[in-house]
């Protein structure tokens, strides 16, 4: 199954989850998603998602001066972001359970 198609629906939640753990800048988020096992995540998708989540008012943003390179724009969850995250998590769990049952029934039948 093409995971890029699956990713499209859950990338928001994945990014929110990564940032809920700890704040990060764009490429840091990309790296952490990949380290977590989402190998197929596209760089541009992550950057676009970050921007959209920020526009939607779920993220805070601040610039951190970096010693070795340019200043980096860090993102973190704000209160609204945490609410959205909680709601999305609930939706995902319900969806995942449903899919799980469906697949298990299919396999045992």
């Amino acid at each position: 199954m093409d995971t890029t198609q699956l990713l499209k629906g859950v990338l928001d939640l994945a990014v929110l989850a990564v940032l809920d753990e700890r704040d990060g800048y764009g490429y840091d988020v990309v790296r952490r998603l990949r380290e977590a096992g989402l190998d197929d995540v596209g760089d541009a998708s992550v950057y676009g998602t970050l921007r959209r989540l920020f526009q939607a008012g779920t993220l805070t943003s601040y610039v951190v001066p970096s010693e070795e390179g340019p200043h980096r724009k860090y993102y973190g969850l704000n209160a609204h972001g945490r609410d959205v995250m909680a709601l999305s998590t609930k939706t995902w769990r319900g969806f995942a359970d449903t899919m799980d049952q469906l697949i298990t029934k299919g396999a045992t039948a």
């Binding site: 990338l11 596209g42 760089d43 541009a44 998708s45 676009g48 998602t49 959209r52 526009q55």
Partner: peptide, 10 residues
């Protein structure tokens, strides 16, 4: 890249 950025940014 641009298309992906555009779509994911909504």
């Amino acid at each position: 890249y641009a298309a992906e950025l555009r779509t994911s940014a909504g």
